[in-house]
């Protein structure tokens, strides 16, 4: 698990950890039953107060992303994968929102942006199918 803390950010550190674990689960970099480092270990690795790590883990546990096995450690939960569908939608919509805002700055109207979106979909889908055919 690779986590990067930006201590000069307005986002609380515990929230940075929560968001990065969620993203890694959504992207499949963390899979169900993968172990997470212990609170102490991660605190030492990131040079961050262990209370902060504990709080992030607690948050993730309550979201159902990770679970604790008594006396053994912390693992990515099975439920994390189905939850990660929502997470993937969230990440995508964030990306799209940025693009839409840029589009408005470029003074494109809704229908112009929609047609760009449809064209791109067609092109990317075509590429996907070609790729799939090429592999099989």
């Amino acid at each position: 698990m690779r986590i990067k803390i930006d201590a000069s950010s307005g986002v609380p550190i515990y929230l940075q950890i929560v968001n990065q674990v969620r993203t890694q689960v959504a992207l499949g970099q963390l899979k169900p039953e993968d172990p997470l480092p212990s609170v102490r270990q991660l605190a030492a690795d990131l040079v961050v107060n262990p209370n902060t790590i504990a709080r992030a883990y607690l948050d993730l546990e309550h979201q159902g992303i990770i679970y604790k096995r008594a006396g053994q450690g912390t693992y990515v939960s099975l439920r994390a994968v189905e939850m990660s569908k929502n997470e993937r939608v969230r990440i995508f919509s964030e990306l799209l929102e940025k693009a839409l805002v840029e589009g408005l700055h470029l003074e494109l109207d809704h229908s112009e942006m929609e047609s760009v979106f449809r064209d791109l979909m067609t092109r990317v889908n075509g590429r996907d199918e070609n790729g799939a055919r090429g592999e099989s």
Binding site: I5, S8, I13, L46, V47, V48, N49, N51
Partner: peptide
């Protein structure tokens, strides 16, 4: 160091 306080402190 603000960063140090941020990392270590509650």
């Amino acid at each position: 160091s603000v960063e140090e306080v941020e990392r270590l402190a509650d």
